[in-house]
Amino acid sequence: MRAVIGLWRWRHNPLRRTTDLVEAWLALAALLFILVVAPLIGAVVGAVAQDALQQSVRDQRQARHEVTATVVKKLSRAAPDPDPETSSTRDAHSRVLAEWTAPDGTAQHGTVVADLKTPHHGDHFALWTDGHGRIVGRPLDSVTAATHAVLAGFGAAALAAGSVEGGRRMIVWRMVRRRYARWDQAWDKAGPDWGRTGTGS
């Protein structure tokens, strides 16, 4: 809004400098970019990220399978974690020796982390595996993927707007420096006693 007011104010002002008009037009262009183009960039990036992440969700759902594992025996706890966030999560899980049947029908066994506080022989828990029974992480869900896509869109829009505003400020800064340099040159030409010129002193 200030850019539009600035342009209107400087239209026919006799004190207007070329740099004043350039600065006002630059501010108006930056404002229009931030209000129109940056949101479009964010929307495009968000849509592309959404397509890619939702495809990843579909791929992971096809490749990963939830199976039921059975506790054979509880194993000793791992060394304590100094990070309070991960250690609180780890407290609700236990290392166990377990066995499970892979989606391809083969019997599997191994050391896994079960979401059981006090596991006992014969307890059942859910486990994610690939088609051959190898343990994999839980697949990405659609809501999380959509959240990441929205964040990517917002981030792209903010980055575009910030880049334009930063570029505008850099250009204005250089223009002001040139203006000051010209003033210094004019001051040097006028000399130290410019105020007494023509007074007969």
Rank of each mutant, 00 (worst) to 15 (best):
M1N: 10
H12P: 00
P14L: 10
L28K: 10
L28F: 14
L31T: 13
I34P: 07
V36G: 03
A38E: 08
A38S: 13
I41D: 04
G42K: 00
G42I: 05
V44I: 02
G46L: 09
A49Y: 06
Q50D: 04
D51C: 01
A52C: 05
Q55A: 06
V57E: 01
R58C: 10
R61A: 06
H65C: 12
V67R: 02
V72D: 14
K73I: 07
L75T: 14
S76P: 10
R77V: 13
R77S: 15
P80H: 01
P84T: 13
P84S: 11
T86C: 11
S87Q: 09
S88I: 08
R90S: 14
H93C: 06
H93M: 02
H93Y: 06
L97P: 06
L97S: 08
E99M: 03
P103Q: 02
D104E: 12
V112L: 10
L116E: 00
T118E: 13
T118M: 12
P119Q: 12
P119A: 12
H120I: 06
F125T: 14
T129R: 15
I135A: 00
D141T: 07
A157I: 06
L159I: 05
L159H: 01
E165T: 14
R169P: 06
M170L: 12
I171G: 02
I171P: 04
V172L: 03
R179H: 03
R179W: 05
A181F: 01
Q185T: 15
A190N: 07
A190K: 03
T197W: 03
G198P: 06
G198H: 01
G198Q: 07
